[in-house]
């Protein structure tokens, strides 16, 4: 691990900072018969301050999820720097700093082991990082499950016995286990019923306040972004093309990609009022 000295005061240093981050994938033969190299991230410079709530939006394939995976240490960037809480994480995805960043996927139901009970699912990150004894871990898991509003008898049930909304709650509890400072929510509210989505969003906002978390929302749903985030960054073809405060942005996006996104979504929804 690259042991850089902590940079001055914590409050000033952004909790996440990337400098010219690049990442590409090579795909096999396309149906048009050639090898494709997809440059997903083409130099991302991003700064997220602690406690901020940043939304990352953009069309499918604009590199949002790749960025999220790089930030969470699941994907190794090709070049560029990634700083978490003032430390350079270099290119090692085993860097200890990545415990401070947790990624919640859209399909959290699929990312749980069906043979684990709920408390095992939640306490697994603790086990992996050798935290406490078994009893302590289970205790902590049950506490976390209470925090996210799961019923008391849920601890012994298996993942398959939970409804979609409850599974998301479980994923949030698991994400909180190592007390990360940043949660990256990759479409974490997509595919839920409207009512459940509202419940989950409120829960996440409460947790953010209680634990002073930094949120990075990745979403297609602009109406949710409007309510959940304070800042917005628009991605297109691996670059951040615009960043602004949410209110400014909704009043009038400056980038053509942002205008397209907002227009498409508004045209769509205003039909409902007609």
């Amino acid at each position: 691990m690259n042991e850089q000295p902590l940079r001055q005061s914590e409050g000033q240093e952004p909790i996440l900072r990337t400098v010219d981050l690049r990442k590409g994938y090579t795909r096999g033969r396309g149906w048009r018969g050639k090898r494709q190299h997809v440059q997903s991230l083409q130099g991302i410079d991003l700064q997220v301050r602690a406690g901020q709530s940043l939304a990352l939006i953009g069309a499918s394939g604009s590199g949002k999820s790749t960025l999220a995976r790089c930030l969470a240490g699941l994907e190794r960037p090709d070049s560029g720097e990634l700083w978490i809480a003032g430390r350079n994480c270099g290119y090692s995805s085993h860097s200890r700093e990545f415990t401070q960043v947790h990624l919640i996927f859209q399909d959290c139901g699929l990312s749980t082991n069906p043979r684990f009970t709920a408390s095992e699912i939640v306490s697994e990150p603790l086990l992996i990082s050798h935290w406490g004894t078994r009893a302590e871990r289970t205790d902590r898991a049950i506490n976390l499950m209470k925090t996210v509003g799961l019923p008391a008898d849920a601890a012994g049930r298996r993942a398959g016995e939970f409804s979609g909304g409850q599974r998301r709650r479980l994923a949030v509890a698991r994400a909180l286990a190592l007390e990360p400072r940043v949660l990256i929510l990759d479409e974490a509210l997509a595919g839920l019923d409207l009512s459940t989505q509202g419940q989950m969003a409120n829960l996440l906002l409460e947790i953010q306040q209680a634990r002073a978390l930094t949120y990075l929302w990745i979403s297609h749903d602009l109406s949710l972004v409007l309510r959940l985030a304070s800042e917005i960054a628009v991605m297109d073809e691996g670059r951040i093309v615009e960043s602004a405060s949410v209110r400014e942005w909704f009043a009038g996006p400056r980038s053509p990609q942002g205008q397209d996104l907002l227009q498409a979504s508004r045209a769509w929804r205003s039909g409902a009022e007609r």
Binding site: L205, A251, E273
Partner: peptide, 12 residues
């Protein structure tokens, strides 16, 4: 909806 107004913010 997609139009920011005071009343439309949190909680959802």
């Amino acid at each position: 909806d997609l139009f920011p107004r005071e009343s439309s913010v949190r909680p959802l």
